[in-house]
Amino acid sequence: MSDDLTIILTAGLLGTACGLLGPFLVLRRQVLLSDAVAHAVLPGIVLVYILFGSRASLPVILGAGLFAVICVIGIEQIRATGLVKADAATGLVFPTLFALGVIGVTTFASGVHLDLDSTIYGDIAFTPFRTWELFGTEMARSLPLLAAVTVGNMAMLVLLWKELKASTFDPVFSKVNGISPELVSRILLIAVAVTAVTAFESVGAILVVTMLIVPAATAHLLTVRLLPLVAVSVIVGWISAVGGYGSAVALDASIAGAMGLVATICFSLAFLLSPRYGIITRAVRHQRKISPVLSPGLQPVSRAGDASGSEDVSG
């Protein structure tokens, strides 16, 4: 498999895995939790390195997963005191965990290959070189990992579609019908954490956060129903993957950054031109609506219409 294809496939799988979850984060107003989780896992990675001297996938994913859960629970606990709002609770917890990670890196692991750049900026460019022997063929280990996560997320969506839908749009209704919104929310957050942590290890934090947030926000501007929202979000993820890789090669710049940029361009286009919610389309529609009132030439037409309507009623 060529390197180009590996990178594009990795990013596309990431876009699928994240695109399945992102819409629910957007609808539940928990978007920034993904950013928090992506930063909060740093101490987990460092801890695994200090304890086992390893950067192998599985221990790192476990260590990072532990801290992702600590982060989510910590935010929830602080918010539950009622003394601190959810946004401030998020902003208290994840920088603290990140700070622990930074201290760990600089004190115990300096000089080894665990620099902040590669964990934060992500090195999706290196995915083709980190390989596993699978079924007799050598393949980039990011592919089976992300494929597994994608399948897992897909299974969760299929199995819990009704529950997710009910608890996202109307928590009270879902509770009355015996679906615990808290439980569904916890399952969703665990899925987000697992996705973020797995992907983080192979492509870097910023790309995960981008893929969780931006395609879903873009799709939110283009769709009204839930199923199309998820589908469009996945499609935007793939567009960012392919377009981002192309432009990164053309510009000779960071692949993760370029993919994020393409996703953001998609969002900007949707924001301006979405048929229903775009600000330009809305301005044009508004202009059309008020123009008959403003221009006298069109006024008789609408009046005539009104008059004929009333005649019909009376006749």
Partner: peptide
């Protein structure tokens, strides 16, 4: 979230 990731991606590029 969108502004954060958008500007940061721009910065990295």
């Amino acid at each position: 979230g969108v502004v954060l990731t958008g500007f940061f991606s721009l910065g990295i590029v």
